[in-house]
Design a protein around this nucleic acid. Structure first.
Ligand code: SF4
Ligand code: SF4
Lengths: 133, 133
DNA sequence: TCTATTAGGGACTTCACAGGTCTATAATAG
DNA sequence: CTATTATAGACCTGTGAAGTCCCTAATAGA
């Protein structure tokens, strides 16, 4: 029961991009170095974020990744779901109806967690903590 | 990011034991059949619950597993921690001090979830839902 | 138009661990 | 003593995370 390394990398990258907010795209090379991870692997992760519509990529010389217009609304949960998927923590193979007490408890606990992650926007975090690159 | 099958089995077993609350211990054979899992495997899981002090085991003829005295206070979180361990969802290898904003957010989200799981006692669940074996 | 630079994608490897099986041992009721 | 029960250790297997390698596509700048 852990978040994957990929989620770790995605969160850090988004934090960096949000704190930087340049018009100029930032290359995966540079992003990978900061996190001591291989560029090829990080690029696979960032492609997921692109497909989720959070960032955009520009190929070619001076290309890289850049936030999209709605960047101020991106939450932790958005990023986590983009990488981990949005399946439930608890998947029993059976379905004993909506009355199942075990599922009800675990899923409502999960919802509590997601609620906080959904309300925490990356942009607010940067503003509150005055993060400078 | 999922709870393991083992946690699933542990929760179901505890639900069953709590709903039954007999003085007579219940054998792993019977518990395993209800969940369509091998007795040997389930016994490994139940041994963890024994070591965590939630249930006790009686060897020999007519032996099995039985709740301990404090059974009314056992929470979902107790069971989950006994099986999954209590490590954090998010473990970055570095430690950039207590000010790290990413950790702060994720860990407080996790705490929200654990709070609910800690307050939900198995015995209350059985009482509220009127579960009968 | 050519070339260097960038992202994207597919195929592949490696490793850890969940999920289980098998077998032997220890305890105990009858 | 014996049948029945839990405990423990060694072992197996499949899956998925984490990462590498290499080829392709796009594009800015010379
Ligand atoms: S009781 Fe609930 S959690 Fe258990 S198998 Fe049925 S539906 Fe799933
Ligand atoms: S910024 Fe926080 S989460 Fe990231 S490596 Fe540092 S301590 Fe860990």
């Amino acid at each position: 029961m852990k978040y994957s390394k990929a989620t770790d990398y995605a969160l850090h990258t988004m934090l960096f991009l949000t704190a930087a907010t340049p018009q100029k795209p930032i290359g995966v090379q540079q992003l990978a170095e900061r996190q001591s991870v291989s560029p090829t692997y990080l690029s696979k992760i960032l492609t997921k974020l692109v497909k989720a519509g959070m960032i955009e990529s520009i190929t070619g010389v001076n290309g890289g990744y850049r936030l999209k217009r709605n960047w101020e609304d991106i939450s932790f949960l958005d990023i986590i779901h983009a990488i981990e998927g949005s399946a439930s923590l608890f998947d029993c193979s059976f379905d004993h109806g909506p009355g199942c007490p075990i599922q009800k408890v675990v899923l409502s606990a999960e919802e509590k967690m997601e609620e906080l992650l959904r309300n925490q926007k990356m942009s607010d975090l940067v503003r509150e903590h005055n993060i400078v690159i």
